[in-house]
Lab assay of single mutants.
Amino acid sequence: MASQGTKRSYEQMETDGERQNATEIRASVGKMIDGIGRFYIQMCTELKLSDYEGRLIQNSLTIERMVLSAFDERRNKYLEEHPSAGKDPKKTGGPIYKRVDRKWMRELVLYDKEEIRRIWRQANNGDDATAGLTHMMIWHSNLNDTTYQRTRALVRTGMDPRMCSLMQGSTLPRRSGAAGAAVKGVGTMVMELIRMIKRGINDRNFWRGENGRKTRSAYERMCNILKGKFQTAAQRAMMDQVRESRNPGNAEIEDLIFLARSALILRGSVAHKSCLPACVYGPAVASGYDFEKEGYSLVGIDPFKLLQNSQVYSLIRPNENPAHKSQLVWMACNSAAFEDLRVLSFIRGTKVSPRGKLSTRGVQIASNENMDAMESSTLELRSRYWAIRTRSGGNTNQQRASAGQISVQPAFSVQRNLPFDKPTIMAAFTGNTEGRTSDMRAEIIRMMEGAKPEEMSFQGRGVFELSDERAANPIVPSFDMSNEGSYFFGDNAEEYDN
């Protein structure tokens, strides 16, 4: 993207840094990872977990959730003011799984939030270390993106479920800051804005008074975040219109849905970061690795190297396929839920299948599930090659597409044709070009129609051997075009429920 120079890199967003050079960025990201790792080690000690239990991804998720809940100030305040039966607002906890007599047992633990905050700050040299908290939120978000298709949420806001490739980060909490905003897809931002506008339509006082002023500035800020994701002048001009509207209503909703559809071809720039579970960072720190000293990046080879040398386990339900569970977590670790499966298959070195073909449910185990038949197995999170994460949407291309997802959002900077089903997408653009945004709409449609099938995206960008740390010898991959490109292809993934 041309304006790259004016933006802070995501590592800076990730670490609240002012302008830093590459070495400083690597050190501050490393410091953040160190903090998460030290916190995780301490929690495993508190909970008396064995090494194996500490490497269980379900335990990692519970521990991450506990610290996120302990620092969720708004919710904590709300819980104190609106006490609900049987919930102690000062405590947080969740299921911890232990191996007892050759069987997995679930144990519900409860801790004072104050105590968890103390352990977290102690692991982070006394700081609140917001960057580390956001990092864990993005890992949870990436896992949700890989596990669930947001059909219901899309339909509720009037969008087409086939636009799911635009929904990265749709389950990120509001408090995820600049680093969170960077990884949100165009569809996620559109959905947040539509929800806001709908509230304004239904509630006369939404934009009024002292609160209304705050609401208005939040609305304009979200519009600017979305505008910054678009790469064409016409899309940005249309966002200006939406932002400046005196009284946002149905016309703005129409414009936003139009823009979301246009992003299936004229893709937005959305950041991709490899955020790993805390149970990967903990053992690495415990083994003596100093992330701050060595430096770390979320968008280069580092996460690949770390996963190459990590042992992570997962509980497996009786009829689940461990290899499929591994694929789910591998995609989440690489922030690749909406990437082209052919690119992923090449990088991973084994075939990556669409969601609907995987015999696996989510990673988390519900409290009512029976533990008797639970097994555990090693997650295979290694890769054959590594590639640089991208934040450009890439230019655009036609490809055989599917009944489910009709476009992709690249996660890796790797040369390819970008699949999208042009006739299906263009069919949504018939007729409606009147109104105050008509010239911009016409211009956007013209650009979409001009998108050429034979153009290559990320020209000359390749993948790298894991021994090639400096990215000196790019390998331009070859793809098996007979395979499906979309992950949520004609899909039956479970729906995400809060």
Results as ranks from 00 to 15, higher is better:
residue 7 K to F: 11
residue 9 S to G: 10
residue 10 Y to E: 01
residue 15 T to E: 00
residue 22 A to F: 03
residue 23 T to H: 00
residue 23 T to C: 00
residue 26 R to W: 08
residue 38 R to H: 02
residue 40 Y to G: 08
residue 43 M to H: 03
residue 44 C to W: 01
residue 45 T to M: 09
residue 49 L to M: 01
residue 49 L to T: 00
residue 50 S to N: 09
residue 52 Y to G: 02
residue 55 R to V: 03
residue 56 L to K: 07
residue 66 M to G: 06
residue 66 M to S: 06
residue 68 L to N: 01
residue 70 A to R: 02
residue 72 D to A: 13
residue 75 R to K: 13
residue 77 K to I: 14
residue 83 P to Y: 14
residue 84 S to H: 02
residue 84 S to Y: 09
residue 84 S to R: 05
residue 85 A to R: 00
residue 86 G to V: 03
residue 88 D to G: 06
residue 88 D to F: 13
residue 89 P to F: 01
residue 90 K to S: 02
residue 91 K to F: 09
residue 92 T to W: 11
residue 95 P to G: 01
residue 98 K to V: 01
residue 99 R to M: 06
residue 106 R to L: 15
residue 110 L to M: 10
residue 112 D to Y: 03
residue 113 K to Y: 10
residue 117 R to F: 05
residue 118 R to L: 06
residue 122 Q to A: 04
residue 126 G to V: 01
residue 130 T to Q: 01
residue 133 L to S: 13
residue 134 T to I: 04
residue 134 T to S: 02
residue 138 I to K: 07
residue 140 H to A: 09
residue 140 H to I: 09
residue 144 N to M: 06
residue 146 T to P: 15
residue 146 T to D: 08
residue 154 L to C: 06
residue 156 R to V: 01
residue 157 T to M: 09
residue 157 T to N: 01
residue 159 M to H: 06
residue 165 S to G: 00
residue 166 L to N: 14
residue 167 M to N: 07
residue 168 Q to I: 07
residue 175 R to V: 14
residue 178 A to T: 13
residue 179 A to C: 08
residue 188 T to R: 13
residue 193 L to Q: 06
residue 195 R to A: 06
residue 201 I to R: 05
residue 202 N to A: 00
residue 203 D to I: 07
residue 204 R to Q: 13
residue 205 N to A: 06
residue 205 N to G: 00
residue 209 G to C: 05
residue 219 Y to I: 10
residue 221 R to Y: 12
residue 223 C to D: 12
residue 225 I to A: 09
residue 233 A to Y: 12
residue 233 A to Q: 00
residue 234 A to H: 12
residue 258 F to I: 04
residue 266 L to W: 12
residue 267 R to N: 13
residue 277 P to S: 13
residue 280 V to N: 12
residue 281 Y to R: 13
residue 285 V to P: 09
residue 286 A to Y: 05
residue 290 D to K: 10
residue 294 E to Y: 04
residue 295 G to Q: 10
residue 296 Y to F: 13
residue 300 G to C: 08
residue 300 G to A: 04
residue 304 F to N: 08
residue 308 Q to N: 14
residue 317 R to D: 11
residue 318 P to M: 03
residue 319 N to F: 15
residue 322 P to C: 00
residue 323 A to N: 01
residue 324 H to L: 05
residue 328 L to C: 10
residue 330 W to A: 04
residue 330 W to L: 07
residue 341 L to Q: 05
residue 344 L to M: 07
residue 346 F to W: 04
residue 353 S to F: 02
residue 355 R to M: 04
residue 356 G to S: 10
residue 359 S to C: 08
residue 362 G to W: 13
residue 363 V to H: 09
residue 367 S to P: 14
residue 372 D to I: 10
residue 377 S to P: 04
residue 378 T to S: 00
residue 392 S to F: 05
residue 392 S to Y: 07
residue 393 G to A: 02
residue 393 G to S: 04
residue 396 T to A: 15
residue 397 N to C: 12
residue 397 N to F: 03
residue 400 R to A: 03
residue 401 A to G: 14
residue 402 S to F: 14
residue 402 S to E: 00
residue 403 A to D: 09
residue 404 G to I: 14
residue 411 A to D: 09
residue 412 F to Q: 12
residue 414 V to I: 05
residue 415 Q to W: 14
residue 418 L to I: 00
residue 423 P to C: 06
residue 429 F to E: 03
residue 431 G to D: 07
residue 432 N to P: 01
residue 432 N to C: 05
residue 433 T to D: 00
residue 435 G to V: 08
residue 438 S to C: 14
residue 440 M to Y: 15
residue 441 R to K: 09
residue 444 I to T: 00
residue 445 I to Q: 06
residue 445 I to D: 10
residue 448 M to F: 12
residue 451 A to F: 01
residue 452 K to T: 00
residue 454 E to K: 15
residue 456 M to R: 15
residue 457 S to A: 01
residue 459 Q to C: 02
residue 463 V to A: 14
residue 466 L to N: 00
residue 473 N to V: 03
residue 481 M to Y: 02
residue 485 G to K: 02
residue 489 F to K: 10
residue 491 D to N: 14
residue 491 D to Y: 05
